[in-house]
Design a protein around this nucleic acid. Structure first.
Lengths: 216, 216
DNA sequence: ACATAAGTTTAGGCAATCCTAAACTTTATA
DNA sequence: TATAAAGTTTAGGATTGCCTAAACTTATGT
């Protein structure tokens, strides 16, 4: 049960070690804005939990479990930050700050779903959390390419323009939802889809940003 | 600086008092899953912060500041829960649980933006946070709800009946187009809109299926 | 190589929350 | 209206995490 605080230590150690190096007490203290004594105390705890390898006076490194945990939290941070910027339209500074809190409380599942909305492409790295799922993302086909009568589940939204993503979400185009095409109007005109209880007209450009996995 | 924990106490007191009644130690203890002694201790702290009014053996009530604070947190919970369900497609149980954590870390601004995406209409109550903003619901208001002279962009069409959607589209009601209301005829009669070069009369029922984002 | 500087750990404390047990107040009942 | 039951508070501790000061280890310079 690493607390938010322990998680922060792990994160700083990850940053300092880059996954394999050794981090020193003073450097951790500086990053945490905490006294060296407090760091030593925490290192003992984390070592006891087998999240780090710690030799007195010699510095720390992450164990495989510690590394996995730290990466998972770091991924959540990145996903949350991106999400706050792209979906809630927050600026980078605020998004970063808020993500520092969200990383500790966001469930794995929610992070994965945010990732799908926001697109993994620009995620410097979220494999700890999303694994192959992020890659699978490429598997859907664009909503404007399916034919009338076909149904499927929304897989992800392609993220090139946050404004459009926001719009799609506000209309209800959200990964996981089932959708079917009712019909097309004209070759360039909007397409009519059915989702839940309502029919929604979406113009082709917007539809092309939505990827679905078509039912067999 | 009410900690997450203090905030939880405030929330439980709000639930028990409904804003004005009096809450008793034991009931708070039961809701918090904590001993009565711990509650007493916390009540003293909250009273000291002037968030509650506390008389030994007599129970507690929220002060105006305490009430405002509790409501703000409760609103964040509701908005987050709704958002998790509608945007991340989480089920109610998980969303509720996660919202219990988010309520303490979500910034006011992010909550307001989530609220705008998810729509305030269904929000049982979020006025503490959003005030009149909720009504504005950036994701679109029905075309029959705007007033003469107002203009906006069509956001989406919503309806159970594909026939009506097709009709709207064939008239030119397509997401993205700019539209303005010219005037109403009678209270139940058709409304006249201007779109591009032409005026179009639309009856109220059809107009209510069209959602627009009104220009500020 | 050895003294001193730099870095790290230990010791002893403080604050926030939680706990149990005992003391005290209020309510309810015989 | 006493007195037992129910409810509440006080007392005394535990835990987590932070701090400063002192002690200890390692590194550096001559």
């Amino acid at each position: 049960m690493a607390s938010g605080n322990r998680e922060d230590y792990l994160l700083r150690i990850l940053r300092l070690t880059n996954g394999d190096g050794i981090a020193k007490t003073t450097d951790i203290a500086a990053l945490m804005n905490v006294s060296a004594a407090s760091v030593t105390e925490m290192l003992r705890i984390l070592a006891n939990d087998e999240l780090i390898t710690y030799k007195k006076y010699k510095g720390v490194s992450l164990t495989p479990e510690g590394l996995a945990m730290a990466k998972r939290i770091r991924d959540k941070h990145q996903i949350a930050e991106r999400f706050l910027m792209d979906v809630l339209d927050k600026d980078q500074g605020d998004a970063h700050e808020e993500a520092c809190k969200m990383e500790h409380i966001l469930s794995d599942e929610s992070a994965r779903r945010m990732c799908r909305i926001v697109g993994a492409a620009e995620m410097s790295d979220c494999e700890a959390l999303c694994g192959s799922e992020c890659i699978k993302k490429a598997s859907g086909i664009q909503l404007n390419k399916i034919s009338a009568g076909m149904a499927g589940k929304i897989s992800h939204l392609k993220c090139d323009d946050a404004e459009k993503i926001r719009k799609l979400i506000s209309i209800g185009f959200v990964p996981g939802r089932t959708i079917s095409m009712v019909n097309r109007t004209t070759s360039n005109g909007p397409i009519i889809f059915r989702m839940g209880e309502s029919n929604i007209a979406l113009d082709q450009e917007l539809a092309s940003l939505v990827f679905v996995n078509v039912d067999q």
